[in-house]
Amino acid sequence: MLARGVSRSSVIQSLKVMLIPGRYGLERWSYVLQRVSGVVVSLYFIAHVLETGNFVGGITVWSVPDYSFAERAYEETVKLLKNPIFDAGLAVVGFLVALHTINGIRLVLAHFGFSLGRPRRPEPFSPPPSFSSKQRALFWLSISLAVFALLYTLDSLMKVFRP
């Protein structure tokens, strides 16, 4: 009703706006990363629930099936998952979970008005109070932890693939 006369952008255009941070700075990057990580981790969560359910017999079984069933289900899952794409995917999920967690804490703090600067008279060349150093520090902490998680996974992968 309020948007009367404004043409709504197509899903493709919206995706472009959501995924390309452009030149708007760090907070816009945080917005993009928080969205992407949220969606990817949600998809991982759905896959994880389905996959663990599969191990105990799929949707129709309501008791633990015998060991041979488990072995078969395991072999099938391994056949599906054992390729570099899923390994890389695991590393990416580790990266995104760490990022979404700390960045999420940063956003909750901001939403409750903590860790932001106070309103003040605008001065030339000084950053807005909402881009406070505490907020920036938390953002970089989320990036650092995410990179650490990524490196840890890659390190594990290296060990695994060493002949």
Binding site: F55, V64, T153, V160
Partner: peptide, 18 residues
């Protein structure tokens, strides 16, 4: 091994974590 490496190597035993 850590669970991470076991998971990545896919040589854990089914039901081991249950």
């Amino acid at each position: 091994d850590t669970i991470w490496e076991t998971t990545l190597r896919f040589d854990s035993i089914p039901y081991a974590v249950l």
